[in-house]
Design a protein around this nucleic acid. Structure first.
Lengths: 158, 158
DNA sequence: ACTATTTGGTCAACCACGTTGACGATCCTA
DNA sequence: TAGGATCGTCAACGTGGTTGACCAAATAGT
């Protein structure tokens, strides 16, 4: 039974959306730690996703993530130190440094995708697949398109 | 027309939830800035909410927000500096410092609530009220209960 | 071909928001 | 009254952002 409209102050909606997001992220994080990636921070999966199997540069990564090239560079530094990414010179442009995924990075990304799929399935088991799909459709309808294309200003927070 | 299940990789769901959250928060933020509260950071509204009209202490605030008392203290520092909160000695316990909302803080909190209600209404205009309610019901069902009671570890992120 | 501009990466300083550890001061309890 | 718990704060640190400055390399314009 749905609660009456008057019982739903507006501040609950953002809180629930945040709760949903963080629940998924925390579960992912815990599962990745169990699967041999304890150093992978929650947002790193999205960074790996943004790097992609073709690799990128720090500047381009920054644009995709909607953050400055300096911030992207620092994030790359950390993931390089953790062994998830590496840097290589671009033979065709001596200014550019290609950022590519290492095998470990690829493993982390693949596992992230698998776990996310499992978590979504768990929601579907609880709510029914059509309601999960409805949430996705609805959120797509009320959020700017660039959000789910990953080129959004500040999607990291901050 | 809903997209087929196979078209919905799991990583889209958290992204859409985050997009929904940040869209609301950004819109709130922009509107609050327009209404005379440009310094209010997106999360400050939740802090004011947690302080409440009765006031609290830093330690208790930390428990409500699921962060350390030190972090809560620093957040209070900032909001005091901005004129949204003030501190007073507790006459019955010299260790405690009562954190209370100033008139400006109360104004910010009230406006936040109004704007959030308006934003929720805007979603209802687009999606239909029953689908917004369904999103809320569904998210309640798949997230731990403490989330929407505001006493959750690390709901700030980080 | 040689300047002038743009672009890519990095350094430095800074800020917001969190963490842990330590430590007085105060309160409560045995 | 001694011992322990609690409150606030200080300090050091980590992470994830920001701006500004700057050099080197590529590109565009004359």
């Amino acid at each position: 039974m749905a609660t009456a409209e008057s019982d739903r102050p507006g501040f609950l909606l953002p809180l629930l959306l945040l709760a949903g997001f963080r629940t998924l992220i925390d579960d992912l994080h815990a599962e990745l730690a169990r699967q041999g990636h304890p150093e992978l921070r929650p947002l790193h999966g999205f960074v790996l996703q943004a790097v992609g199997s073709d690799g990128t540069t720090a500047t381009e990564l920054g644009q995709r993530l909607g953050i400055s090239k300096q911030a992207a560079g620092k994030t790359v530094d950390r993931l390089v130190a953790l062994g998830y990414l590496d840097r290589a010179d671009d033979p065709r442009d001596a200014r550019r440094k290609l950022v590519r995924m290492t095998p470990r990075g690829l493993d982390g990304l693949r596992r992230s995708a698998v776990v996310f799929d499992q978590l979504r399935q768990r929601w579907a088991d609880t709510l029914g697949p059509e309601r999960v799909a409805a949430i996705e459709d609805d959120l797509r309808a009320v959020t700017p398109a660039n959000w789910f294309r990953l080129d959004v200003p500040g999607w990291f927070g901050g």
